[in-house]
């Protein structure tokens, strides 16, 4: 469900980044000031800060936890089958005596790692492809838009599910690549829209007339100007990727048995969820908490990086400041969107 949320979220950022001069110049002094400003605005947002701390803590615990616990994720305790949480097994044990705590930590490790990797990879791909399509236009543009439209008709979840039986022996890194390969399209479309408006700006034209190569212009002038969007999007994509991964694993199409992810743990645990809730509740709660924390970080980053966002300031100012700009840009964005689909 985050697929389209990304588009809308980013649309909000797009308005500010494209509609107002973010920082046309690249003076090093100006950059640090902006960095400090963003940091201050981010730190002011309590919820985002808590989210960041929670994500970091969870990730660290996921690696430290198994080290502290005497059990490993594939070991069995033959003296304790299906026991509820106790001092020796913090989250209880499974039917065959596996320690739920260590398995959950292992699953959290896997799910968060996959999420982070997919978020970063897919956003990078989206940035390059979207900027290329927007900047070069023509065939590159049309092909990209067709891909995005195709993804609309053929949900990426369906493609991944179809592909999964052929990839069951290949390990989770291939799974990461596949997940990333089918989750960049929507972001790419937003990047394309922003590139279309950035392309006509003076500093890009100046670079072009100075004879800079197109790829240098994209890397030096276009992408840095939408850095805020890309950072926010990468964060949101992490949350989406975690949800997609656990979903696929839940169906048995993702991470494969000897290994565990939060999705497989929840699937195995829910078969007897009503009598032995400790089997799936830890994994379920950790999954919700981690995605929630990632989403809060994304939300906080948007507020911090988006100059038109005024959370925490007074309401009257907000209404006046944003109304005119938003009205102007929303028309522009709409034409670019409908033009793309038609």
């Amino acid at each position: 469900m985050t697929m389209s949320r990304t588009e809308q979220d980013a649309a909000g950022t797009l308005e500010s980044a494209a509609g107002s001069p973010v920082e046309p110049g690249f003076a090093p002094g100006a950059a640090t000031t902006r960095g400090r400003l963003v940091l201050r605005r981010f730190l002011r947002n309590r919820l985002a800060l808590v989210g960041l701390v929670v994500v970091v803590l969870l990730y660290v615990t996921a690696f430290l936890g198994p080290a502290i616990s005497p059990w490993t994720y594939d070991s069995q305790d033959y003296t304790a089958f299906l026991v509820p949480p106790s001092p020796s097994h913090w989250f209880g044990t499974t039917q065959i005596g596996g320690d739920v705590f260590v398995q959950t930590m292992r699953g959290l490790q896997k799910s968060l790692t996959i999420g982070l990797l997919v978020g970063v990879i897919s956003t990078s791909v989206a940035a390059v492809v979207g900027a290329a399509a927007g900047y070069f236009g023509g065939w590159a543009d049309r092909a990209l838009m067709w891909l995005v439209d195709l993804l609309l008709v053929l949900p990426s979840f369906l493609i991944l599910a179809i592909l999964s039986p052929g990839l069951q022996q290949t390990g989770w890194l291939i799974f990461v690549v596949l997940l990333a390969a089918f989750s960049w399209m929507i972001t790419a479309r937003i990047v394309r829209g922003m590139t279309l408006s950035l392309r006509e700006r003076e500093f890009v034209k100046a670079a072009r007339f100075m004879g800079e190569a197109p790829w240098r212009i994209i890397a030096r002038h276009i992408l840095p100007n939408m850095a805020s969007l890309l950072i926010i999007d990468a964060t949101i994509n992490v949350g989406t990727a975690v949800l997609t991964e656990t979903g696929l694993s839940y169906f048995g199409f993702g991470v494969q048995p000897p290994d565990v992810s939060l999705g497989t743990l929840i699937r195995d645990g829910t078969q007897s969820a009503l009598t032995t809730p400790w089997l799936f509740l830890p994994a379920g709660i950790l999954l919700i908490v981690s995605v929630l924390a990632v989403n809060f970080v994304g939300d906080g980053l948007r507020d911090a990086l988006d100059p038109s966002s005024t959370r925490g300031r007074r309401r009257e100012r907000r209404a006046k400041a944003t109304a005119g700009r938003r009205a102007a840009v929303s028309v522009d964005e709409r034409t670019s969107t409908s033009g793309a689909v038609a």
């Binding site: 469900m1 949800l243 969820a273 009503l274 989403n295």
Partner: peptide, 21 residues
């Protein structure tokens, strides 16, 4: 809304089942 959006459908359904029971 944030909590619901962070909860995968299969987990949401399981929790609802739990509540229904």
């Amino acid at each position: 809304a944030f909590v619901v959006l962070s909860t995968p459908v299969f987990l949401l359904g399981t929790l609802l089942k739990f509540g229904a029971l």
